[in-house]
């Protein structure tokens, strides 16, 4: 099990980058009135074959050659279903993959969302050839970060240069707090 939902998100989004996605969209949508936290990760990567989709939630299936287990997707599915939520993954070869997990916010079995700022910052600064669209919603308020917009402003200045990297982290932190009022959940 992952100790934070943000780590599940990092793990699944890493799969998108390995699937050669040019754009990865990550939506975190929390709604306390509906007692629901919905996480969607979609990409335009290589997608999965029918056989791969059928086995993707099987812990003893992986396309890796270095080990015989693949726990990333099963972990995410289990984390969502343990709360009474749901998990769904759709994919098409050459089109991309969409993973959606819904959590019941008040469930005692729900792990915390955790450090989303670090997850998004890590993805953006370590995968400079991939674009990310991150949308964070909390009770209807939202902010988003789109690396395509950042790229337009920066030109060829790399995302891992100290000032840019620090700015991205500050942007994520400040806008998250403004969106959810600093709620910890």
């Amino acid at each position: 099990m992952m100790t934070e939902i943000s780590l599940n998100i990092l793990d699944v989004a890493e799969n998108s980058t390995r699937a050669k996605a040019s754009l990865v969209t990550i939506i975190v949508d929390a709604n306390t009135a509906e007692d629901r936290l919905a996480v969607t990760i979609s990409d335009d990567g290589c997608g999965m074959t029918q056989e791969q989709i059928e086995h993707v939630t099987d812990p003893f299936f992986t396309t890796r050659k270095t080990r015989k287990v693949g726990l990333g997707v099963p972990f995410f599915k289990q984390a969502a279903e343990l709360t009474g939520g749901s998990f769904n993954i759709t994919s098409e070869v050459g089109v991309g993959t969409t993973t959606k997990a819904e959590f019941v916010l008040s469930s005692v079995d729900r792990v915390p969302l955790g450090d989303m700022d670090s997850t998004i910052h890590t993805l953006i600064t370590c995968h400079q050839d991939t674009d990310f669209l991150y949308i964070y919603r909390y009770n209807g308020r939202e902010f988003q970060l789109d690396t395509r917009e950042i790229r337009m402003i920066l030109g060829d200045v790399p995302f891992d240069s100290p000032d840019v990297s620090a700015f991205i982290m500050q942007y994520l932190q400040a806008n998250r707090i403004e969106t959810d009022g600093g709620a910890a959940y």
Binding site: M2, D11, L71, G72, F75, D115, S118, T125
Partner: peptide, 17 residues
């Protein structure tokens, strides 16, 4: 990968980067 992330690779990567 999943094994690294689950055992704490994210803060390690961030410290180094």
């Amino acid at each position: 990968a999943t094994c690294g992330i689950a055992s704490g690779a994210r803060p390690v990567l961030r410290t180094l980067a």
